[in-house]
Every structure is written in structure tokens, then in C-alpha cells.
Computed example of a mutant assay.
Amino acid sequence: MEIFTNIKTGKTVMRDAPQESKVAYDGKMMIVEIDNEGIITYANRTLRDMLDYDKEEIVGLPYAVSFHPDMPEGLYKQAFDVANEGKIWSGYEKSITRNGQYFWTAVCVQPKYEMDKSINGYIIRKKLPEEDVIKEVQKEYSRLATLDLAECSSEFCGELNFH
């Protein structure tokens, strides 16, 4: 079990330990916005329902509340490093729900801008991935989880190019 504090309300939220139980995902787009400190400022209903948090609970929680421990830490660093360069990062993410269940998504992380063009947070879009790709991603991410953060690169994630 892990405990997270909502910086907006001051209340704590408990998340169960990971289970080997997959939660069904209907494929609707999930959107979450976070600030520069990684705090959730917006989460659409689909994401809230998948993670099993209501709006008052999730806004103000760290985005890490949804990080499954199977995910290589270096991929989150890579995603936000790419977004901090004003680019879009694309990859796959295994998320964890409040009760410890998991689900996989194809993810895009992009920066949000102020009027002066400074980055003031990130928009993260999640959608249903292709199931056969996830089998390969799981193998690759297991390998990456054992590496140094700086060595974390994969054919399954990185800067999204529109060429």
C-alpha cells in the first residue's frame, strides 16, 4: 500500500499494492494535465474512472499515483526531458489503479505553454494500445527496469517525429 497527499486538499489517498489483475479498458481517450511539479491539474472522466478516483481526490495528487512499479523510471525522465525541449514523447505506459489493478496505454506527452512561450506543465493523452505490441513492450520494459536512468532507451518509445 502507498499513501499520496493531495496538495490542494491536504487529504491523503491510499493506493493498494500491485496485483496481477488487469482492469478492462474500453479504449476511450484518457487525458491528464499536470503542472511542472508533476501535480495533476486536470483529469478527464475516463481517466478518473479507470484509476478509481473522483475529481476532488485526483486534482492535486502527484501524477506518480498512477505509476505502476513495473515501469522503468528512466522512461518517465525521458518523456519529460523530451517534452521540456518542446517536443512530443510517445511510448507505452503501465498504470496502476487505486485497488492495485493495472492497464496498458499508448501515451503521448507534450508541453503546455504560457503566453510568453515558457512551459507551464504537460498534457498527457492515453489511448488503447495494440495488444500484440504490449507483449513485446513488457519484455523490453523488464530489461530497461534493470538499467541506469541515463541508458533508458527503447524502440517502443521516444520523441515523436512527424516526418
Rank of each mutant, 00 (worst) to 15 (best):
K28H: 13
Y113T: 01
A64F: 07
V65P: 09
N84K: 14
L75M: 15
R143Q: 11
S95M: 10
Y113M: 01
Y122V: 07
I34C: 09
V59C: 12
P62E: 00
K28V: 12
H163Q: 11
M30V: 11
E130H: 11
N84V: 05
I34N: 01
G60F: 03
R98M: 00
E131W: 06
G100K: 01
E20F: 07
N120F: 01
I134D: 02
C157N: 14
S118N: 13
K127A: 11
G86H: 00
D148N: 15
Y122P: 06
H68M: 07
K55T: 09
I96Q: 01
D52I: 07
S118Y: 03
I88S: 05
S21A: 12
Y42Q: 07
Y25C: 09
Y102R: 08
L128Q: 14
D52G: 04
V23N: 05
Q138K: 15
R45Q: 12
M30F: 10
L160M: 14
K87P: 04
E151K: 15
G86V: 01
K127Y: 05
F80Y: 01
E37N: 14
F67Q: 12
Y63S: 08
G121Y: 00
Y25H: 08
E85W: 04
Y92K: 03
M30W: 09
V133E: 07
Y76P: 08
Q138C: 11
L75P: 03
M30L: 13
G86S: 02
S66N: 09
K28W: 13
E159V: 14
G60S: 01
S118K: 15
M115N: 05
F67P: 02
D49A: 13
G60T: 04
E130R: 07
R48Y: 01
P129I: 01
L149H: 07
Y92G: 02
I96Y: 00
T105C: 06
L147Y: 12
D148T: 09
D116C: 04
R45M: 12
V23T: 13
E20S: 10
E56I: 08
D26E: 15
K55P: 02
Y141F: 10
T46E: 10
N36G: 13
V32I: 14
Y63G: 06
E57C: 08
N84C: 02
T97L: 01
N36I: 11
A83D: 00
V65R: 11
M29F: 09
G86C: 02
V137I: 13
C108P: 00
E114N: 15
F80T: 02
L61C: 08
V137N: 00
N120P: 04
S66F: 05
K22F: 09
Q19A: 10
D81N: 12
D26Y: 08
V133I: 06
E93V: 15
M50L: 09
L47H: 12
I123W: 02
E155A: 13
G38V: 05
V23M: 12
S66H: 04
P129H: 04
S118E: 09
K94C: 08
D35E: 04
S153E: 13
I119Y: 00
